[in-house]
């Protein structure tokens, strides 16, 4: 049994909050560069140029990439041979978020009640997801998520008869009705299968997949490419001003489901697609 004090989790979360809000991961940045090179519509190219400039300024460390520094979504893979000491895991994560958002001059965007509102003042509580995995390590992935794109996300409980076509039509329609709202170019996370709980979780996890990776099953890898092509044929373009680059990438995650259903969830992320992991 390996012992790990939760204070190291607090420290890691705090620095991840600040880092992710100033630096995109290199794969995401490279993807933006590639889409910029492929874009041939002048208005769209201008917008992508501003987005690239924004990444440069944010990288200097004073101004975050976006003013919506997000809800802190935390995914923890906890090795079953780890014994956490020094406090409760979720408290440690929330303390990290509190510290990161305060020390990093990030925006506090969480309200304590969904209807009666009231800002909590420190961006807690975080969205904390813990999975027990083999081994004696702790992996922490932090993904601040903006709500302009979150609000454009959808789930549909499709009947099995809808088939592949039904899934693709739904994903494309979600992107089309989102239009300019989620700050295109977007990253599209698709979760297929599971149930009303798992499909959105898969979609959200799909947003953590590096943009140069495809689904390991060629059937779904091809679907990802086809969906990207269909979405980029909509003409919405960067910021909705028209153009090719409506989406940077589509990533799909799948799992088994019930004989009676085919849940599909689409989690939209914006070009400020922030996530980073550390292993303790």
């Amino acid at each position: 049994m390996r012992e790990l004090n939760v204070s190291s989790i607090t420290d890691a979360v705090a620095s991840l909050c600040i880092e992710t809000n100033h630096h995109l991961d290199p794969v995401t940045e490279a993807c933006i560069e590639r889409r910029y090179a492929e874009e041939d519509w002048p208005v769209a190219k201008d917008v992508l140029d501003i987005i690239k400039h924004n990444i440069e300024i944010a990288g200097e460390g004073v101004f975050p990439l976006c003013q919506d520094t997000g809800m802190a979504c935390v995914f923890i893979e906890l090795g079953q041979d780890v014994h956490l000491t020094g406090g409760y895991l979720e408290d440690a994560v929330n303390e990290g978020v509190r510290r990161g958002y305060t020390d990093g001059y990030l925006r506090k965007a969480i309200v304590k009640d969904p209807i009666r509102r009231g800002n909590t003042g420190d961006n807690t509580p975080a969205d904390i997801n813990v999975e027990i995995v083999p081994g004696d390590q702790v992996k922490i992935i932090l993904a601040p998520k903006g709500f302009g794109s979150e609000n454009m996300s959808r789930i549909r409980m499709l009947p099995p008869a809808a088939g592949q076509e039904g899934v693709e039509d739904f994903v494309v329609s979600v992107c089309e009705s989102a239009g300019a709202n989620p700050c295109p170019p977007v990253v599209v996370g698709v979760g297929i299968g599971g149930n009303f709980h798992k499909a959105p979780l898969l979609a959200k996890k799909a947003l953590l997949v590096p943009l140069d990776q495809s689904h390991p099953d060629p059937y779904y890898a091809e679907m990802e490419d086809r969906l990207l092509e269909k979405i980029n044929a909509l003409g919405i373009g960067p910021q909705g001003f028209g153009g090719k680059t409506t989406a940077l990438k589509v990533n799909i995650l799948t799992m088994p489901t019930h004989i009676a259903g085919m849940p599909v969830a689409v989690n939209i992320n914006c070009h400020v697609s922030r996530h980073k992991e550390v292993i303790l």
Partner: peptide
């Protein structure tokens, strides 16, 4: 009018 969404560091300048 629209400002560029997600170009918040640029806008701040």
């Amino acid at each position: 009018a629209a400002a560029i969404g997600g170009a918040a560091a640029v806008m701040a300048q």
